[in-house]
Design a protein around this nucleic acid. Structure first.
Length: 214
DNA sequence: CTCCGGATTCGT
DNA sequence: CGAATCCGGAGT
């Protein structure tokens, strides 16, 4: 059963509400928005990366529903991309990247932080898009700019590695927001990757105040 | 088994 | 700029 629902949103009690209209349906957690389809992910990785900008990431976790609008991502193209985890071939850690599209690849970095990716392209390709920053929408506490902080604010950790993003727990939804310009820059923290470090595979919403780095 | 370093963040 | 802190991947 589907509903159109208007959510009143404010991040601080001193701010006015703004209203967001979303298509929702019932699931085990109560209300949820509709996940985008697997076909969306089964495309060229740069295309998926840019298309993710402006969409909402939704997580129904034990503390309730959390939603953030995706404002910054990085594309990791496959085994030929020396900055990608998949450049080392299939391993225990990265095997989700080589699986079918539309699944979450979540790993621990520097022993402290989690990073969340969405798997793209056909099964076996080994590509993904890293989610780097969100704008808070619903249920978010703390900062959301930077891949580790994004995961912390959304309640995402390695227990969600391999999760089906076409399911009803963690997924991406359409958002009817304002139009925006997309900026391209080199990816962050991949200086070891030679010429691949120079490729402009980081995408973000121009002028968003929630970008992790300019 | 040991060793090295990382798609980061925070505090100095 | 260095510490935190753990695990994956490579080498012995």
């Amino acid at each position: 059963m589907k509903y159109l629902s208007a959510l009143g949103i404010r991040n601080k009690s001193s701010e006015p509400y703004r209203w967001v209209v979303v298509e929702m349906n019932m699931n085990k957690s109560g209300f949820s928005a509709k996940p985008i389809s697997r076909d969306f992910y089964a495309r060229d990785t740069e295309t998926v990366a840019m298309a993710l900008l402006g969409k909402n990431l939704v997580h129904h976790c034990s503390e309730g529903m959390r939603i953030g609008r995706i404002v910054e991502v990085e594309a990791y193209l496959g085994p030929h991309d020396k900055a990608s985890h998949s450049a080392k071939g299939v391993t225990r850690r990265n095997r989700v990247m080589f699986g079918p599209p539309g699944y979450g690849y979540v790993y621990l970095i520097y022993g402290i932080h989690h990073c969340m990716n969405v798997v793209t392209e056909a099964k076996g390709h080994g590509a993904a898009v890293l989610l780097r920053a969100l704008a808070p929408v619903v249920g978010i506490e703390g900062r959301t700019s930077g891949p580790g902080l994004l995961c912390k604010a959304m309640g995402i950790d390695r227990s969600l590695n391999g999760i089906d993003l076409c399911g009803d727990t963690l997924y991406v939804t359409e958002e009817n927001g304002e139009t925006f310009s997309v900026a391209r820059r080199p990816r962050i923290g991949v200086d070891y990757a030679g010429k691949w470090a120079k490729q402009h595979l980081r995408f973000y919403i121009q002028d968003s105040p929630h970008i992790s780095r300019p």
